[in-house]
Design a binder for these strands. Structure first.
Lengths: 114, 114
DNA sequence: TAATTATTTCGATAATCGTCGAATTATCGT
DNA sequence: ACGATAATTCGACGATTATCGAAATAATTA
């Protein structure tokens, strides 16, 4: 159990989100909530070929940002909010000036959540 | 003046951070604060060849995450905390479940800052 | 079992990314 | 002006990424 994210995982997550289709895809799943969406529905919404979508889905799964489960014929994908939260925490703690005060307010706000 | 970040800028910023050397580099500049660091010092700290570092620096500059200014012979780079803050805001607002409540606490905390 | 639906995997291809060393630009000191 | 220092730009190369269509896998229905 790793409650915190290391640099490698962070890079993996950032890379997974750093693509037009995948960012849109992740946003879609976040909007949708825990119920998730079937791959086919996602492909249609994004206007991407199924085989291409599969590629992008795997990137997000591998980065831990989304989960997959089979339900009869379909495979349902859902956003993993915990992973996203850990990513945000890493960025806040490591990339938002703890010592100097530039990003301190944001940092302080995040700390309150823990 | 765009106080908010659109998807394209977000992808650019995410991609810029999604690399071992660049994430480390950005963290280094954030730690360093407004004073910034010269390219040569950064190259030495990261153990990267100057020409390779230049490549990575340009990615971060292009994404707006760092700034550069020439001071005599050296070029000083510094983290742009505003840009990082906008990236965090975009992610919080678009990738952290506004409607459904999964990531709502984090979202609420961020809203208070605005 | 055979046909259908939902999705992934594979193979080929084009495009982008990252690294290196050599050449180039800019600035400073003498 | 000349040599030294600091950094970037360029060109080549290998590695990774993204896309597409065809084939394969899994589950349902007739």
């Amino acid at each position: 159990m790793d409650a915190t994210m290391d640099a490698k995982q962070t890079i993996s997550a950032l890379g997974a989100l750093a693509h037009e289709n995948r960012l849109q895809l992740f946003r879609l799943l976040v909007q949708r909530g825990p119920e998730g969406l079937a791959a086919g529905v996602i492909a249609e919404r994004l206007g991407v070929l199924p085989s291409s979508l599969s590629f992008h889905l795997q990137q997000l799964v591998h980065a831990g940002l989304i989960t997959q489960k089979r339900v009869s014929r379909q495979i349902i994908y859902a956003a993993n909010c915990d992973a996203m939260g850990r990513l945000m925490a890493y960025l806040t703690e490591n990339c938002c000036a703890e010592a100097s005060g530039a990003c301190a307010p944001a940092d302080a706000a995040w700390r309150k959540l823990a």
